[in-house]
Structures are given as structure tokens and as C-alpha cells.
Amino acid sequence: MIEARGLSKRFQDKKRGEIRAVENVSFTCQPGKIYGLLGANGAGKTTTLRLLATILEPTDGTAVICGHDVVEEPEKVRASVGFLSTATALYPRLTAQELVEYFGRLNGLDEPTLNKRVDDIFNRLDMNGFRDRRCDKLSTGMKQKTSIARTLVHDPPVMIFDEPTLGLDVMTARTITAFIRECRNNGKTVIFSTHVMSEVEKLCDTIGIIQSGKLLAEGPLDQLRQKYSENDLEEIFVKVVAPHSVAAEAH
């Protein structure tokens, strides 16, 4: 379970002064459910997810993941989380198997458990054909599978995906969305960010719309449809975001 409580993140920029990337964001993601964070580029999605994954530290507020506070116990939080984004690249000079094993060891797995898990994952994701191939020699699809294997090796109860399909071809993107569904079916808590409406419609149990670092609307798709009297998610999104965009531009 993920529970964000008033999460805020401010950065200092020499030219622009203080930037409020995330402001007082609170939400809850339940096990066996997919929470979709929907927002335009620069809305604060990546920063929010990096705060949850403890890659960044919040300026104010906190989040509790599987009972561990992101500020107090960041290492325990990371051990409970699988984090996948287009920015999480692979080590080019390691083979697919070495890479997955490396992250398994860093997650504290002993050698017999690690070997068993690696074999299971490589079989399940059909990766045996390239397990000894270096990551810089893999195709985009193979790289994505290796990244998935990396996030799964320690069997985390929480999965965080930051725009996981960005820049991928249709077939590779489908592998990812299928994987996200599988995580939900296995009872994991899943949060993922995107600006692709169709992905949200297909996958998410709960949707959070974020703009200028603020969570502006939240709820299941049906609830949002009723609230904004619109059937199309894109129209709902525009209705939620537009007044704030104008205000932000004026500011």
C-alpha cells in the first residue's frame, strides 16, 4: 500500500528562483489496484514518483509504503518497491543475467534464492535466448524485458512505473501494459504515470490528475465522468487542467 501525505518538493533554480515541483499531494493506492497519475509534461508526475521511490527526498510531507516512511526508512522503502522508468537504463557492459543478479544481490537475496528467482523470471519472460548477451547488444524489447526482470527479482509488493511506454513501439509497449496488469492480478500495489489517455482508460482503477505539482482531481473513471459530466477522459482532463493552466501562465 502507498499512502502519500502532503508530499511537497521544491527546487532552487539560479535563473527561475524557487520551483514548486510537487505541492501538498496526498493520495492512497491499494494492493491489487492500479493508480494512474495523469498529467502533461512538467506537471510533477516524475518528481512525485521519484519521491515515492526515495530517489528524491520530500521538502515537506511524507509517504508511507508498506509501513515504511520514505523519509525515515528510505532503504526499507526501496526494498519494497520495483521502480521502472524510461530513465532507468541498463548497464551496457553487463549481460542480462548479470544485471538481474546484481540487483537481486543488492536487495539482499542469498545465492540459492537468487538463482531460483532468476531462473523463474527468465523462463516466465522468455528471456533465456539472450541471458548471456550484453545489455548494449539487446534490442529495445529485450532491454524492456530485462528492466522488468530487474524490478521483479526481489518480488516487491509495490510497483512504480514512470511513463514506462514512452518512446516504445506498439509491441514493446503492449509487453509493458500486460506486465502492469499481471502485477495487479498478483495483488501488488501499482502506481504509474503517463500522459497517454488510452493507457489510463484501459488500465487504471483510480485516476489522479496532476498539474503544476498539485493533485487537482482524483477517483475512479466513472466517478470522474459523473463529476465533470463528460464521457471522454481527454475532455475531463482539459476541464480539470485548463483553469489552472491559464492561472499558471498568468503567474
Binding site: 521511490a53 530517489i55 532503504e75 526499507k76 526501496r78 526494498a79 518497491v81 521502480f83 522508468s85 530513465a87 532507468t88 537504463a89 541498463l90 548497464y91 551496457p92 540487483f103 543488492l106 536487495n107 539482499g108 530487474r150
Partner: peptide, 14 residues
Amino acid sequence: ERGTMETILSSPLS
């Protein structure tokens, strides 16, 4: 530059 910094920072390693 290779984008692996974020990968390693997301592991439990201190």
C-alpha cells in the same frame, strides 16, 4: 550520461 544512475539509486543500496 548512460541513464543508469537512476536505476542504481532505486535499489535499496545506501
